[in-house]
Amino acid sequence: MGVYHRGSRAVQDRVGVRAAADHVGRSIGQGIKPVAAAFLELQPLLVVGAADPATGRVWASALTGTPGFVRATGPRQMSVTGGTRPTDPLAAALTTPGTSVGTIALDPRTRRRMRLNGRLRRTARGFAVEADQVFSNCPKYLQRRHSYETVERTPGQPGRGGELSAAQAAFVRAADTFFVASVHDGGADASHRGGNPGFVRVDSPRELSWRDYAGNAMFLTLGNLAADPRAGLLFLDWATGTALQLTGEARTEFGADGERRVRFTVEEVVETPSAVPLRWSPPEFSPANPDPPG
């Protein structure tokens, strides 16, 4: 498959960065290089995005394990030991062979991140992804968390709803990081968004929005949303392990001043207390973060 599809090309052309995107796009390959393989084996967290095969709704989920639970097992293959809980919205997708998945391994300790997108197949110990796209991103807007500890936690029963509660809205407003899953005809993607607390606005219990900060000019996420508005968001409490998963549709608004704002309409909310057995140290905010609007 090509590096870019029509959705990404449309956004690149609108913003006037096609040449820059072509240059950056040369970094996207299908192979997992030794440095990438070594990075994967150090990670206790992997975020996966996909569409539920029954409902078509797009979700992002957090998978965790002892470092080594994610590893390269071939020139183009990443294997994951374990999977999601049966109550996770992505449980069916991650047990369905051929599912298009997007993954991102993000290490707050080093402010490095790696994305691998491809097709899933079942294995005896979990699942594997045959890579179509493998690439790294710069550390821009990524908060540093110097250390983590693994703690004994029993995930709570997921709470479900059709809109954000007051407490969930406060959780979103306080976030400095979230993950976004998106899809297109040829696959899926999982990406990261970061900023100072307040960078995500809660405009109503069923609508969020955030400014799209200047990035690498590829516009993979915004390109996916231009072709298919379905999206999934994942917010993590880096201290308590609570996971807040949202699914809905997202559209990009292009301002006359060149500012871009993504507007997300909530269709379903899933909140799981103590979902992630990792307790991270407090953040050191990225110097690249713009101040959130007042």
Rank of each mutant, 00 (worst) to 15 (best):
residue 2 G to K: 11
residue 3 V to I: 09
residue 3 V to F: 04
residue 3 V to N: 01
residue 4 Y to K: 06
residue 6 R to E: 15
residue 7 G to A: 07
residue 13 D to P: 02
residue 14 R to F: 12
residue 17 V to L: 01
residue 19 A to L: 13
residue 19 A to W: 11
residue 20 A to D: 10
residue 21 A to P: 10
residue 23 H to L: 15
residue 23 H to V: 15
residue 24 V to S: 02
residue 27 S to T: 14
residue 33 K to E: 15
residue 35 V to A: 15
residue 35 V to G: 07
residue 36 A to D: 15
residue 39 F to N: 03
residue 39 F to W: 01
residue 42 L to N: 14
residue 43 Q to V: 00
residue 45 L to P: 01
residue 45 L to M: 12
residue 53 P to I: 02
residue 55 T to M: 07
residue 56 G to M: 04
residue 59 W to Y: 11
residue 59 W to G: 02
residue 63 L to C: 01
residue 64 T to R: 08
residue 69 F to C: 02
residue 70 V to N: 01
residue 71 R to P: 01
residue 72 A to I: 04
residue 74 G to Y: 11
residue 76 R to P: 10
residue 77 Q to H: 10
residue 79 S to M: 06
residue 84 T to A: 09
residue 84 T to F: 02
residue 85 R to C: 03
residue 89 P to L: 08
residue 90 L to F: 04
residue 92 A to L: 13
residue 93 A to V: 09
residue 99 T to R: 10
residue 100 S to H: 12
residue 100 S to V: 03
residue 102 G to S: 05
residue 103 T to S: 00
residue 104 I to S: 09
residue 107 D to W: 09
residue 113 R to N: 14
residue 113 R to Y: 10
residue 114 M to V: 00
residue 116 L to W: 05
residue 117 N to Q: 13
residue 121 R to Y: 07
residue 124 A to Y: 07
residue 126 G to C: 10
residue 127 F to G: 01
residue 127 F to K: 03
residue 132 D to M: 13
residue 135 F to P: 06
residue 140 K to F: 01
residue 140 K to T: 02
residue 142 L to N: 06
residue 145 R to T: 12
residue 146 H to S: 13
residue 150 T to V: 10
residue 151 V to W: 11
residue 152 E to G: 05
residue 153 R to E: 01
residue 154 T to H: 08
residue 154 T to E: 12
residue 166 A to H: 14
residue 170 A to C: 10
residue 179 F to C: 01
residue 179 F to G: 00
residue 180 V to M: 14
residue 181 A to T: 10
residue 185 D to V: 12
residue 187 G to P: 07
residue 193 R to L: 09
residue 193 R to A: 02
residue 194 G to K: 08
residue 195 G to R: 08
residue 195 G to E: 00
residue 197 P to F: 04
residue 198 G to P: 00
residue 199 F to P: 03
residue 205 P to I: 03
residue 206 R to G: 03
residue 208 L to D: 04
residue 209 S to M: 12
residue 209 S to I: 13
residue 210 W to T: 00
residue 220 L to I: 05
residue 221 T to R: 00
residue 222 L to R: 03
residue 225 L to S: 00
residue 226 A to Y: 00
residue 230 R to G: 07
residue 245 Q to F: 08
residue 245 Q to L: 10
residue 245 Q to M: 12
residue 246 L to W: 04
residue 256 A to Y: 06
residue 259 E to V: 11
residue 259 E to C: 08
residue 260 R to I: 09
residue 262 V to D: 12
residue 263 R to H: 15
residue 264 F to M: 09
residue 271 E to L: 13
residue 272 T to M: 00
residue 277 P to R: 08
residue 278 L to W: 05
residue 278 L to G: 01
residue 279 R to Y: 11
residue 281 S to K: 06
residue 286 S to K: 02
residue 288 A to F: 14
residue 288 A to Y: 12
residue 289 N to S: 15
residue 293 P to I: 03
